[in-house]
C-alpha cells in the first residue's frame, strides 16, 4: 500500500519569461506559452463574423468594435497616463461629423474620409482639450463629459450641420466584408500597437506622468507634451470609431454625442480589468451584446451599466482579464514528493 505524498507547486511562468528576457524564450513550450493567448484572441475575433451568420449580429460585432476602440483609449488614458476621460461621445461625434462632411460635401470615399477624420479629428479633440490638461482626476472627467453636450446643443440650436435631422447620404462601404473586417483589423492593430507602446521606454514616461509628474518634470520632460500625445492617441481611436460609424449607418446626427459612448467604456474597462488593455476589449464584447438584447428597454440600459459597475466595484472585483492573466501566469500543479 503506497501512500503517495503530494504537494502543490506554484510556478510563475510570466516572471520567468519576463525577467530572463527574450533569449529565455527558446523552447517551443515557452514560445507557445506566449503565443497561444494572442493567437486565440486574434483568431477568435477574426472568426466571429464567420461563425455568426446573422446580419443583425454581424452589425452588433461592428458596434462592439467601436466601443472596443473607445474602451482601449479609456484604459490607456486612465491607467497609463492618469487622465480619467469621459470623452467617448466627444471623440465619436467629432470623428463622425468630420467623416460625414468630407463624404457628402467633397464626395470622398471611406478610404479617405476615415483616415482624415481619424488624424484631423484627433487633432481637433486634442486642441480643444489642451486647456484641461492640467486638470486632474474628476475635473478632467467632467470637462470631457461637457464637450459633447455643448456641441450637440450648438448643432441643435444653430441648426448647422443638418441640425436635428443630421447629415444623410454618407457613402457606404463597397462591400459587407470590407465593412466588417476593416473595423476588426483596426481593433486588433490598436490593441497590439498600444500594448507595444506602453512596454517601450516611452511607456515608462507615460506612467511617470501618472505616478510621479514632478520627477518627470525634473527629468527635463514636458508633462503637457506627453499628456497631449496620449490624449491625441485616445481621441484618434475614438474619431476612427465615429468615422466608421457614420459610414456604417450612412448618416450622422446628434445621437453621435450619446452618453453611452462615454459611459460604456468605463463599465467595459472595470469588468474586463483595467490596466491590461485587452480587458476593455473583452469587456466590450460582453457588455455591448447584452446591451443590444436590452434595446427594448431604451435608455433604461444606462441603469443596467450602472448596476454591473456597482456590482463589480462593491464586490471588489479586479476585472476578468486581470484575474485571468494572473491565473495563467501562476499556474499550479501537483507534484509527487
Amino acid at each position: 500500500m503506497a501512500t503517495e505524498e503530494r504537494r502543490r507547486e506554484r510556478l510563475d511562468r510570466g516572471i520567468k519569461v519576463r525577467t530572463e528576457g527574450i533569449y529565455a524564450i527558446s523552447t517551443w513550450q515557452e514560445m507557445a506559452y506566449l503565443l497561444v493567448p494572442r493567437l486565440v484572441l486574434i483568431l477568435g475575433i477574426l472568426m466571429l463574423p464567420l461563425v455568426i451568420p446573422s446580419l443583425y449580429w454581424q452589425r452588433v460585432i461592428s458596434i462592439v468594435c467601436i466601443y472596443a476602440l473607445l474602451s482601449l483609449g479609456f484604459d490607456f488614458l486612465a491607467h497609463f497616463v492618469g487622465l480619467v476621460s469621459l470623452g467617448g461621445a466627444f471623440f465619436i461625434g467629432v470623428g463622425g461629423y468630420l467623416a460625414a462632411i468630407l463624404s457628402t460635401s467633397l464626395g470622398l470615399p471611406p478610404a479617405l474620409t476615415i483616415p482624415i477624420a481619424t488624424l484631423v479629428g484627433g487633432a481637433i479633440c486634442t486642441f480643444l482639450l489642451l486647456p484641461c490638461l492640467p486638470l486632474r482626476g474628476i475635473y478632467f472627467a467632467i470637462v470631457t463629459l461637457m464637450y459633447p453636450l455643448v456641441l450637440a446643443k450648438i448643432i441643435e440650436a444653430l441648426d448647422i450641420l443638418g441640425g436635428t435631422d443630421g447629415i444623410a447620404g454618407v457613402a457606404s462601404f463597397q462591400s459587407r466584408w470590407v465593412e466588417q473586417y476593416f473595423i476588426i483589423v483596426m481593433v486588433i492593430i490598436s490593441l497590439f500597437g498600444l500594448r507595444r507602446l506602453v512596454n517601450e521606454d516611452v511607456g515608462l514616461v507615460f506612467r511617470g506622468v501618472k505616478d510621479n509628474d514632478q520627477a518627470v518634470r525634473a527629468s527635463g520632460i514636458s508633462i503637457t507634451l506627453y499628456k497631449s500625445i496620449a490624449v491625441y492617441i485616445a481621441s484618434a481611436l475614438g474619431c476612427l470609431g465615429g468615422a466608421y460609424l457614420v459610414h456604417l449607418y450612412m448618416w450622422a446626427g446628434i445621437s453621435l454625442f450619446a452618453l453611452d459612448f462615454s459611459i460604456l467604456p468605463i463599465a467595459a474597462t472595470v469588468i474586463g480589468g483595467g490596466g491590461t488593455l485587452v480587458g476593455p476589449l473583452v469587456g466590450s464584447f460582453i457588455l455591448v451584446p447584452i446591451s443590444e438584447l436590452l434595446r427594448a428597454f431604451g435608455t433604461l440600459r444606462i441603469v443596467f451599466y450602472a448596476l454591473i459597475l456597482m456590482a463589480f466595484i462593491v464586490f471588489g472585483s479586479e476585472g476578468i482579464m486581470v484575474y485571468a492573466q494572473r491565473k495563467y501566469h501562476q499556474f499550479e500543479r501537483w507534484v509527487k514528493v
Partner: peptide, 25 residues
C-alpha cells in the same frame, strides 16, 4: 527632492529610463 520621488513600482535601473529618454539626454 528632499522627499524622494522614485517610481516605486519600477526596478531601480528602470527609474533612469525616464531621464535617459529626455530631450537633453
Amino acid at each position: 527632492f528632499q522627499v524622494m520621488r522614485p517610481y516605486y513600482s519600477l526596478p531601480a535601473y528602470k527609474n533612469l529610463i525616464v531621464p535617459l529618454f529626455s530631450p537633453r539626454a
